[in-house]
């Protein structure tokens, strides 16, 4: 409950933050909302020697529409996303279901994506919407696609000296969307979660469907078999049920104290059906 001793610095700019990380060595860590990192430190599962707090770094805040996508500053708290269903759609929907209000008041989108927990909700959303993050490092900025960001359990392709500055979520105008998170208690991490976004052709058939899975593997996953099964179909309850049956194809979800592998695979199918019906306006 009490972390090991560490140093703490609050840089005033991105460059200073990167310098601090470099000078701090391999056990220096960025601190955003602290709601993933600090619990690990309190349990002494993480023992960084230096925390570089991003709270005074300018430019990491704000939610703006830029052309076809939303630019969300890395330090944007879940609470700032949670009520914006009208414009942020499934991003707001997923953010609103994270833990409880205290956690949402602190946790940030940048921290959540950098932490790369496959049981967390926003990584699945980024993968489903095919968004990107911008990472600033000593050699400048680069844009990383969601599919390239999440590598393994709590492992991303970010370099230790890179800082996520902003997140781009495609606006998905005209798409239907749904997010279904299955938990024992309201405040829990997803036992399984499913995000679905669907775009229809003029004739009502599915032009494009994207389905993302939370906590079904070491990273967030796409349910490609289910997506493919839907394309070209009318968005009916029957077609959704048929596609949802493929949601867990090819997955090897980790069993835990709440759910066996088989049960998680079953849940993925049930929740995919629900998320798609939500996206189709059938719920």
């Amino acid at each position: 409950m009490i972390p090991a001793a560490f140093d703490y610095t609050v840089p005033g700019s991105l460059d200073e933050a990167i310098d601090a990380l470099r000078d701090g060595g391999e056990d220096a860590k960025l601190l955003a909302g602290g709601h993933s990192l600090v619990p690990l430190m309190k349990l002494r599962l993480a023992a960084p020697t230096l925390l570089v707090d991003l709270r005074r770094v300018p430019g990491l805040h704000g939610i703006e529409r830029q052309n076809g996508s939303w630019r969300i500053g890395a330090m944007t708290r879940h609470a700032e996303l949670q009520d914006r269903h009208d414009d942020l759609g499934v991003v707001a929907h997923a953010a609103a279901g994270i833990a409880d209000q205290q956690v949402r008041n602190r946790g940030t989108i940048g921290g959540s994506l950098a932490h790369g927990d496959s049981a967390s909700d926003l990584p699945t959303i980024l993968l489903t919407l095919e968004g990107t993050v911008t990472a600033m490092g000593p050699d400048g900025a680069r844009e990383i696609a969601a599919a390239d960001l999440f590598q393994d359990y709590l492992t991303t392709s970010l370099d230790p000296l890179e800082i996520i500055t902003e997140v781009r979520m495609p606006a998905m105008d005209g798409w239907g969307h749904g997010y279904q998170k299955f938990t024992r208690r309201a405040e829990d991490w997803a036992m399984v979660g499913v995000a679905a976004v669907v775009r229809k052709n003029d004739d009502g058939t599915v032009a494009e469907a994207r389905i993302g899975l939370t906590n079904m593997g070491s990273t967030p996953l796409r349910a490609t078999a289910a997506e493919e099964a839907l394309v070209g179909q009318p968005l009916t309850a029957e077609a959704i049920a048929a596609a949802a049956g493929h949601a867990a194809d090819g997955t090897n979800p980790p069993a835990d104290r709440n759910a066996s592998e088989d049960y998680k695979r079953h849940l993925a199918c049930v929740l995919t059906g629900r998320a798609l019906r939500e996206a189709a306006g059938l719920a």
Binding site: R184, R185, A186, E187, D188, W189, R257
Partner: peptide, 10 residues
């Protein structure tokens, strides 16, 4: 997190 005490929401 693992020992699931119910809250008012449940």
């Amino acid at each position: 997190v693992d020992y699931a005490l119910p809250t008012a929401a449940e």
